[in-house]
Design a protein around this nucleic acid. Structure first.
Lengths: 352, 352
DNA sequence: TTGTATGCGTTATCAT
DNA sequence: ATGATAACGCATACAA
């Protein structure tokens, strides 16, 4: 095993001073060619690498980004991390991940753990509990310490910082408009409780689309799901709720689910009821994840461009970190995209 | 904005020396109660937190774990990270993630970035390219520097270190045995190329099960998939290959896919051919991910306990990091579990 | 009871 | 052309 090399060791080994070695390593013209060569060869042989901790201490920069997310076993967040990693790596930044499991406490603890100088800035998507309780003292604490924050997706107005968001309202409208365009008259909405921005905004988009097309909003056709865990029971209860709505409104001809799971669940329920998708019923989901791709029929869905969001978040943070001037805070809106697959009719029903 | 607090500032502010402040903060009996109170109150008010970088430099420990994985948008790896996070957090460790995208170069670069003192140890699952090229110099370099490595899932004999592996061979055998038990006579195997341990071992398990049950191995019934990306074309080509095998062997009554995607793809193909699953054909997959849960019928699958693997990997690494003595290297085998859902018949066909 | 000095590894400023 | 010294923030052995 090779010993860890430090400037000190190289210096004493070569009979030079630490500062000479340091300069020689950077090929400083001050140092004689001979010594430069000697030092560099020695360093290379022993695989010398400057200790990044010492550098961090000296430079007061860690070149590390802290990423706080509610869940990692989740297609969208995983994609975002992917994008962050990509940009961060290309700029020689490391990425520390903290998972909150949708808990306010864990969010606060996770961030606490990192504000002791471990990271230069945060990229965060808030936990459900944080949004529900509207408790942001941990975020304010971060800002007091002048540590930059970039929020994405699950953002909040009370904190002033850079934000990257999906235009959820427009996305919802676009999806429902598509359903209307292909002839749907009675569209079931599967959404979340209102405290989740994403659900609320997509729901508003749903209403917008109905409005524009002169379709009356019917509360019966909206299912708001509180919590949906992995468990089979919760899954089944959602199926039950969908089934009940269908019992009462058998003429539903379109479904919009604000995430993949809702949409795929609806797809399965519809098929169990013997409804032909997409001929009798069209379905659109949200988040272009693995479920949408492998569902049968393949699910038409709104893509959120998670990777791109990650890239942009990292880029925004690093820009702020590295620019001298004070940059103004920005809110960047990422356009969504409707990915047409097989769960929506390709041609409108000809009505007359 | 509160200024960053340091011992130095507290000391000068309170007219004490740095070391007095340092001791007072740890409630050292050496220091007068009066000063202890004063310092602690002051520190609390200004929200003082010892700078972790300075501590790392002093202690030569970063309390940070580097995790290197091939992919993050992947259920199994995400689960493993979850498990690592859980244990790491509870022990006050941070987790830095590096994603290799299955590339040897990125694996080496990612690890290079971290061996400059940023982390205390690695947890890694090797990239496909690394396994294919069998190039481990970057790993040896790590070991030269005496940085502990824990490998999981995609491990390799040439590197001596702690390992956490799934008993893939046994798991494969168990799955196929289940198919045999419920009466399958002709079982199609969807597997990877042999250079991936996981595919090779599961394939061996398949053969084991056939052997034990006196069923002849038939090469026709084995589809080895080289690379399968996300793209629709690749997806379709797999479907084509499966279809061709079915054309030649319409009496296939069981399918074992070494991952979720293969199994779900097979499920879809079977259904397109009008085969009733599970009555005419039973299917078993691998990795208990989201696809298995939402596929119709719900997919019977081998669960790898990714979360548990992550927990164990982190625990093993931290143990080695914190114990004084030299621990012997261990290889821990995680048992898999067959999760019976609806893609397998519940009762054997009565043959006579 | 308090304070001084040293070292962790590096870079930069300022002698020599 | 080379080297001594200080500083980053902290802990600690040792002095006072």
């Amino acid at each position: 095993m090779k010993p860890k090399m430090t400037l000190k060791k190289i210096a004493s080994e070569l009979g030079l001073s630490i500062s000479t070695v340091s300069k020689a390593l950077k090929d400083d013209k001050d140092i004689s060619q001979e010594n430069r060569d000697k030092v560099q060869a020695f360093a290379k042989f022993y695989n010398y690498r400057p200790n990044s901790i010492a550098l961090s201490l000296k430079n007061k920069k860690t070149k590390t980004i802290g990423v706080i997310i509610p869940e990692i076993v989740h297609h969208f967040f995983a994609k975002v991390i992917s994008g962050i990693e990509e940009v961060a790596n290309s700029k020689e930044y490391n990425v520390i991940i903290g998972v909150t499991n949708e808990s306010l406490d864990k969010e606060a603890i996770n961030m606490e753990m990192l504000i002791d100088g471990s990271i230069d800035g945060f990229i965060i998507s808030l936990s459900k509990e944080t949004l529900l309780k509207q408790n942001y003292i941990h975020l304010q604490e971060i800002q007091n310490r002048n540590i930059p924050i970039v929020m994405f997706d699950r953002v909040v107005d009370d904190i002033v910082c850079d934000k990257i968001i999906v235009d959820d309202r427009e996305a919802g409208q676009m999806a429902v408009q598509k359903l209307v365009d292909i002839g749907c008259k009675k569209i079931l909405l599967l959404t979340t409780m209102d405290y989740l921005n994403i659900g609320r905004l997509r729901t508003e988009g749903y209403k917008d689309a109905l409005d524009i097309n002169g379709i009356e909003y019917n509360e019966d056709l909206v299912i708001k799901i509180g919590e949906l865990g992995d468990s089979d029971e919760e899954q089944r209860s959602l199926e039950d709720r969908i089934n009940k709505v269908f019992d009462k409104h058998p003429d539903i001809d379109g479904i919009f689910g604000v995430n993949e799971i809702y949409a795929v669940t609806a797809l399965n329920v519809a098929r169990m009821r013997g409804l032909n998708v997409p001929d009798a019923l069209s379905v659109i989901g949200f988040s272009d994840g693995i479920l949408s791709k492998y569902a049968r029929p393949h699910l038409t869905t709104v893509s959120q461009h998670g990777f791109q969001i990650g890239e942009l978040a990292a880029q925004t943070l690093i820009d702020r970190l590295e620019k001298e001037e004070e940059l103004p805070f920005t809110t960047q809106l990422i356009k969504t995209e409707l990915i047409i697959r097989d769960s929506t009719r390709s041609t409108p029903i000809l009505s007359k």
